[in-house]
């Protein structure tokens, strides 16, 4: 196992290459997923508040029709 980590004396090049490579790809994936979640939540909130406002408007309309 020690041989494996030593990589024939070139471990100082092989492991950083994999560390940086996979690290960069993992961070980009994490940021992309986080941003998707944030934007979809924002959209949902906006759509919900729009829906609420439409309900309020409709109720107000009904109310006006009810009162002579």
């Amino acid at each position: 196992m020690g041989d494996f980590w030593a990589m024939g004396g070139h471990g100082a090049f092989v492991w950083p290459a994999y560390g940086v490579g996979l690290g960069v790809l993992a961070v980009l994936a994490g940021v992309s997923v986080w941003r998707l979640g944030k934007r979809e939540a924002e959209l949902k909130n906006l759509q919900a508040s729009l829906g609420d406002r439409r309900c309020v408007a409709r109720e107000a309309l009904h109310h006006r029709e009810d009162t002579p």
Partner: peptide, 24 residues
């Protein structure tokens, strides 16, 4: 596969952002 996955995620994210912008 990683590329395709991230492309799908990021395009979905852009679509959501465009809808938010349109509503605003």
């Amino acid at each position: 596969f990683y590329y395709v996955t991230l492309l799908l995620i990021r395009v979905r994210s852009e679509i959501a952002a465009a809808k938010v912008r349109a509503i605003r």
